[in-house]
């Protein structure tokens, strides 16, 4: 399983990449693998604000549903429209083309609470044992 070291992670299996004042958000390789073939993605609209630990969207495979939880709070600056059209990309390229949102970070201190790749891998190991 691939969990790049330069990203931050949550226990809800999202990854976060910091680009200046913005956070790019997607779901992890582990998450896409456990879901199976992704068939549907529901995202907020640009301009909506999302709140840390609250649901901001839904990702579905044929026989599973997973809520997407906001890793941080902030306003949605951009959404990946083409991903909504072709959500199967989440299975192929979870960290690249399958980014979901760009969010203007509201409170930078929230970023400190995210997991490192190492911590995340340790977490999923504990979870699955």
């Amino acid at each position: 399983m691939n969990h790049p070291a330069e990203l931050k992670y949550t226990k809800e299996h999202e990854w976060i990449k910091i680009e200046g004042n913005q956070a790019v958000i997607g779901i992890t390789d582990y998450a896409q693998d456990s879901l199976g073939d992704v068939v549907y993605l529901e995202l907020p609209e640009e301009g909506d604000s999302i709140t840390r630990d609250e649901g901001f969207g839904v990702v579905e495979s044929v026989k599973a549903v997973s809520d997407l939880y906001a890793p941080i709070s902030g306003a949605v600056a951009e959404i990946n429209d083409s991903l909504v059209e072709s959500p199967e990309v989440i299975n192929d390229d979870p960290y690249g083309e399958a980014w979901m949102l760009k969010v203007d970070v509201e409170n930078a201190s929230e970023l400190d609470e995210l997991l490192s790749a190492e911590e995340y891998e340790q977490y999923i190991e504990e979870e699955s044992s």
């Binding site: 549907y40 579905e60 495979s61 044929v62 026989k63 599973a64 549903v65």
Partner: peptide
Amino acid sequence: LATREQHIR
């Protein structure tokens, strides 16, 4: 579209 339904959601 079974993810709408009780056995999954």
